[in-house]
Design a protein around this nucleic acid. Structure first.
Lengths: 235, 235
DNA sequence: GCGCACTACGTACGGTGTACGTAACTACGA
DNA sequence: TCGTAGTTACGTACACCGTACGTAGTGCGC
């Protein structure tokens, strides 16, 4: 019988090695590493149970002994890349520390463009997520505020980063699913946008586009969004 | 030959009715309405081209005359529900207007739980999205700021709302894909969380959980996040 | 009224997640 | 020490998915 239980279960609470039976050929870390490699290299849509199993060198259904459902594979992956955080000692300046963490998250998401899509609040308590959360809390020690407020701060910063990077990535990742280049598509979309704005039905949008004729410095936009978020919690 | 072009194309630039040939049996609005109904009632994972075509009463491949790719169906859906916004005249109080719009967005996303997942920045210029954007800009007329800043404000507010509601929905929508109830799962997850916190490895998290023993008022959290975001742009 | 661009749609291909059955294996209880 | 229970391994099969392609039929523009 396969390992699929009828009862709810968190993969982290399930022991990696059961008492009886042959010793497992792979560790959870092995599986997560392979899955991450595939998703990084070929895109999240190319990540299938068959693909992972093939790369591991085992039958497709054998994988289900380790990972009851594909969703659990996602959970393993998110936790695995969360280990890439550098959680060295806080400096004592909580704003600087949170800013640095936000930039780490952004870099992490650029290394693993599938992260924003797979991250789910229900995965929020995986082992590495707990380490990360505790570290954030430590960085926020100098801030005089209730724990609840600090939690909201962390959530806000992560929300800004996730939203921003998801947008950054969305355009780039379209290359994978489209038969034409994203530049071509963007050209067509901008042409349509201009044709609409030129109708005069959107005077303020027209003015906005006229104001910022050059390309927008998205890094600066990101930085401002972060600063504003942190300022909102300043004591 | 099917309608799939090798050239990039925005569906909005493609005329609904071509000159020659039999008159189309459905309008884009018909198709979008059916797709929205399915996604609302059965979840986004149950939305397939076959399903939509069946509900419309036509062959699967006929649908591809109207919608070249499934992604275009998504774009139609997002635009269709964007028409549900009540964009009545601004009050002159930009903070109140933006707050009301944010609440509208939240309600919209609760009516259509698939919205956060399908919304993509690349769809950002559909007809109803343009109407919405122009309306936001009109609400922000009283705010003395550059258009670029106003754009950032709109993006920030929408980011907060999307992040927050996506989290709200994620847990609820799990019911669809899981063989057990979300309450059961949450119970198991919380049990694991407690077991981890009880190890003493996460003292600050422990303190945080001890502080807020009762259930958290998520509506209040949402409201605070919105207020903080708007405050950051106050003149 | 001719021709062509369009609509309609059946079939088929290569993929997906995963339920189920069976065979081999090992650690534990007797 | 020896069953035996529970685990691992994995082939097969099912019900889906998006969509490429080919073939008819239809009606507008010339």
């Amino acid at each position: 019988m396969a390992g699929r239980p009828a009862e709810p279960e968190v993969i982290w609470a399930r022991p990696e090695r059961a008492g009886r039976g042959p010793r497992p050929a792979f560790s959870r870390a092995d599986i997560a590493a392979v899955a991450v490699r595939i998703a990084d290299a070929e895109g999240i849509d190319a990540l299938s149970m068959r693909h992972v199993a093939a790369e591991l060198g085992c039958g497709t259904m054998s994988l289900y002994n380790y990972v009851p459902r594909k969703e659990d594979l996602y959970e393993l992956m998110v936790d695995a890349v969360s280990a890439e955080y550098d959680l060295s000692d806080p400096t004592g300046d909580w704003r600087a520390d949170m800013l640095a963490l936000a930039h780490q998250t952004r870099a992490l998401m650029h290394r693993h463009p599938w992260l924003p899509r797979l991250m789910s609040p229900v995965y929020g308590f995986s082992p590495n997520a707990l380490r990360y959360l505790e570290h954030c809390m430590t960085c926020l020690d100098p801030l005089k505020a209730r724990y609840g407020t600090k939690m909201e701060l962390i959530a806000s910063v992560n929300g800004v980063v996730t939203t921003y990077v998801a947008n950054e990535i969305a355009t780039a990742e379209r290359t994978r699913s489209l038969p034409w280049s994203p530049e071509q598509e963007q050209g067509v979309r901008i042409a349509y946008l201009f044709s609409q704005v030129a109708t005069g039905r959107y005077p303020r949008l027209a003015a906005a586009f006229a104001e910022d004729s050059g390309p927008i410095d998205m890094d600066a936009v990101f930085e401002r969004a972060l600063t504003r978020t942190l300022d909102a919690f300043a004591d």
